[in-house]
């Protein structure tokens, strides 16, 4: 039996909104420690790795490991019915073919209950494992979202060049070029506005703008995003949850 109660429905709403446009369905792997998902988009360029640790939940129990195959579009429709501030409880029996979703209004005496039909999903898992990182950038997630949107008007590719004291975002397209430079900054009064760059090796990588547009749909999940870059390797874009994370692994583009 799985039962997880979110203090606010808004958290699961944001997670599903951040995932549903790149992955249509995925397995939610539930253990006593929490819920995890790994899913790859159809083009096998972008991988999503989600971990919702049990501490994220107001109440959580999972007696036996279970895998729940979920259509994210369908889940999004159902959880869209609840108010952001509602308690949201998801539950499933060990051999369930449906996921129970219950919203409890915190003010009114109102409980809404839905069932989502589960899917049998046979998906490949990729061994992403821990890896060395050449450069790590942490910046406000809203700033990163704006950089991606602004650069996308110029080109299908965004080049990220990291040196010791700056990160350069560059797009070169038919209509012209764009450059945005950010430098480390410590903001004591507003720590969420701080920018950090740590570097072992300079980085020059290009990523597809269309995939970055999918990644920045996670912006509302966290005030900061951490970007981990390694030469000739996928970039990792991490949005922290209250306890856990939503990570995107994006394959880079290479010159011929």
């Amino acid at each position: 039996m799985l039962e997880g109660k979110f203090e606010e429905a808004s958290l699961l709403k944001k997670i599903v909104e951040a995932m549903k446009d790149c992955v249509s369905s995925c397995n939610f792997n539930c253990t006593e420690n929490g819920i995890s998902v790994q899913a790859v988009d159809n083009s096998r360029v972008l991988l999503i790795s989600l971990l919702i640790e049990k501490d994220t939940f107001e109440e959580y129990r999972c007696d036996r490991n279970i895998t729940l195959g979920v259509g994210l579009g369908s889940l999004s429709k159902i959880i869209g019915n609840g108010a952001n501030s509602d308690y949201l409880t998801i539950s499933a029996d060990d051999d369930a073919d449906k996921l129970n979703i219950i919203f409890e209004d915190k003010v009114k005496d109102k409980i809404s209950e839905y069932n989502l039909k589960l899917l049998d999903i046979d998906a490949d898992l990729l061994d992403v494992g821990p890896m060395d990182t050449d450069a790590t950038i942490t910046l406000p997630s809203a700033d990163f979202a704006k950089i991606c949107k602004d650069m996308k008007v110029l080109s299908e590719s965004l080049q990220i060049i990291v040196t010791k004291d700056s990160a350069l975002f560059q797009s070169v397209g038919d209509i012209g070029t764009g450059n945005i430079v950010i430098r480390p900054k410590t903001d004591i009064d507003h720590p969420e506005e701080s920018v950090t760059i740590s570097l072992d090796k300079p980085i020059d990588l290009s990523f597809g703008s269309k995939y970055l547009s999918d990644i920045i749909k996670a912006t509302s999940l966290s005030q900061k995003v951490t970007i981990k870059l390694t030469d000739q390797s996928p970039g990792v874009f991490e949005y922290k949850l209250p306890s856990g994370y939503l990570r995107f692994y994006l394959a880079p583009k290479f010159d011929e």
Binding site: V45, L46, L47, L125, L126, D127, P252, K253, F254
Partner: peptide, 14 residues
């Protein structure tokens, strides 16, 4: 134009 790689080139399928 740079070529888009896919993740299979970097990670093994478990």
């Amino acid at each position: 134009t740079p070529i888009q790689n896919d993740l299979n080139e970097f990670y093994n399928i478990i």
